[in-house]
Design a protein around this nucleic acid. Structure first.
Lengths: 216, 216, 216, 216
DNA sequence: CATGAATGAGTCTTCATTCAT
DNA sequence: TATGAATGAAGACTCATTCAT
């Protein structure tokens, strides 16, 4: 049992750190609905049962709350990914990652919506450089991750030999588009199939697109 | 004196009708930038060189302006589509439609952005039932259009025999996602290729996905 | 009775123009007290019996209200000055101007206080360039005015032959300082004399200083 | 063991007393700029490397910090004055006092600015009676001091025989006004002369005014 | 005593919509 | 019909002060 060497954290500090999560959770619970952008800081503070000013002790601005939600969400996404890519088969890895991604995005709509918002360039430009760097690190990590699971497929001739980025593009575009469609409850397709079916088709489509690229 | 039987339109009425387009054009020119949602009704009226109140003679609300922009844009999109689908080859038709769609969306970012906004369910619910119906008609028309160009592909065994909607899903998701990525200037991919290259890949990807569906 | 050639102003426009004055008057009445900087836009709007937003139709910001108050006040000050400088005697002119200045500043403490605030460089820098120019024009006008009444005194050997600015400096410094002292109800001197006596002394002092400069 | 009879001060108490000065120094270093009123208690505590709450162990309010800064500043001003009034010549004394005053005010803008703020009647009224008394004592001391250096001038017929207060009025008004003008970087006079020149003129002006009073 | 987390009233400003002329 | 003045609810953010530990 270590006695020294650990960072000493007082009870107060622990509570303070805890409160940060409480604020994020409060925000998240309020962001569930489609009008999430209209949630006010005051509402968040009331939900978290703290004063409005306290929110600003933890986050410099409302948009910084968005940033941490996104960063947290992405972190968890990676954890989910890492749990399912121990297989040797490239396509299996990819299938699992896609499935898990859909699950995480659809089960956590608030985080996911915020994440989408945080992709916007103008949003990124408003961030402090510190946070902007965190986002850039995150972006690179995503890129590296997909590089690692797609490269073997290229080596085996399964996918066309193009820069990883090119291959990821299609996957990301389709995934993002599909998620948006679900959120928009895109009217045309509600009667066609339930969400699960839609996800299956899109997943298959993503793989087919990737495999089919350059084969025509 | 106009002949009887023709709809009699006074000069004043003609001017009034004309004004509607002027408002939409003014709005569009202001919506070019990425912050289009922050354009105010006042700015629009100034740009159109009319009074703010007059805008409300033509459109019941700001959101109704969005609706007509979207409806107009979709109408023109169809006109573009119809110009390029006279070929007999299913895949050629599709390629042309995809190309034209990318062109229209990227050349008319204002309209396209507004169109995306108008997909949101909460937006649709705020509309008057009259406008909601117009959107539904529009949606059906899109569905029918793609049905007409994809069905022959199914008949020829080119695409898997699934409901048209299923096939369209992937196309739409990928397309929407790709457009969003371009608008977001998605950082990870800026160095990979310029926009044109990106569009080519996505286009190929869309076709590959469609053709590859069910082939695995 | 002129029929044409005059700018046509509708009743509405006239009312609108009128409202501007009403806002300034409301602000002024609220600025009477020593806490004038803490008067809120909302208070002003309530006093003027209009909505808060209406204030912003007339003035882009709270500080712009200050600007117009100052500009108005200075304008009136000039009018007062011009009424009393038709004498031929340099010293008489100066005496009258000083007297009138004290009267105007002490009878209109709200305007005068705001005017002092508007001298601050940081305030000036926050203004729009249009307003900044108005202030600069105003400053030049003050300078020119005093140049016109002091120059004859220099010519006659009454005042030392130094740049007008140098001469004005002392006058302005003393005047501003005296006004501040009165507003601060400077405790040390309350029992010594009433305000009127103080003003007399300061006025005499200002002249004596000017005449005595360079004579030592 | 300290001798009996001396005030026993523990190390802790000494540190506490020391801290008071540290807070004032921290505040002063932050008050240098023209926006000194916007410095927050938190900033002061950070600068002093103590907790915000600790500031309130030493000063009941932010405004009390102002009070002690002013009191300190005035104390030092007196020390400066006393160093230069050992001459026998009334006018020399005065000249030296004026020069030293300008030096102290211009070299210590933070203290000086705060001192000006603390002259405001509304400020004084918000103080505790204990502090208000200290200010009154200070004011009387100023009055007495100038009485002492001006009275010989009256006796010698150098200055008009009026109550000392009357004579001081002009001096103080001019001095305060001049300092304000420098701080405001009063635009009209920036090109006329640099600050030093301005101070010289004002100083001369102050003396000339005093000597000339009643001579007209 | 020292701390710093918590507070929440208060500030300016924006803007879609209404309505009298 | 055209106008644009008027509205007022809302929202993000600040900061002196308090108080439990």
């Amino acid at each position: 049992m270590p006695l020294c060497g650990t960072t000493i954290i007082t009870k107060k500090q622990a509570e303070f750190a805890q409160r940060e999560q409480e604020i994020l959770n409060a925000a998240l619970s309020l962001f569930e609905g489609p009008h999430w952008e209209q949630v006010t800081v005051e509402q968040i503070s009331k939900k978290a049962e703290i004063g409005k000013g306290t929110v600003y002790k933890h986050f410099a601005s409302k948009e910084e709350i968005y940033a941490y939600i996104t960063l947290d969400f992405t972190e968890r996404l990676f954890e989910s990914f890492e749990k399912v890519i121990h297989h040797e088969e490239v396509l299996d890895n990819l299938k699992h990652v896609i499935r898990v991604a859909f699950e995480d995005f659809l089960n956590n709509p608030a985080q996911a919506r915020v994440s989408f918002y945080c992709k916007r360039e103008d949003y990124r430009n408003r961030l402090t450089s510190e946070l902007r760097e965190k986002f850039e690190t995150m972006d690179r990590r995503v890129e590296d991750f997909f590089g690692a699971i797609l490269q073997p497929g290229i080596d085996k001739g399964l996918f066309i030999d193009k820069p990883i980025e090119h291959l990821v593009m299609g996957l990301e575009a389709t995934f993002d588009g599909a998620i948006s469609m679900i959120w928009n409850s895109d009217i045309s397709y509600q009667h066609a199939s339930d969400q699960e079916n839609f996800v299956d088709i899109i997943s298959e489509y993503m793989l087919a697109g990737l495999v089919g690229l350059g084969k025509s």
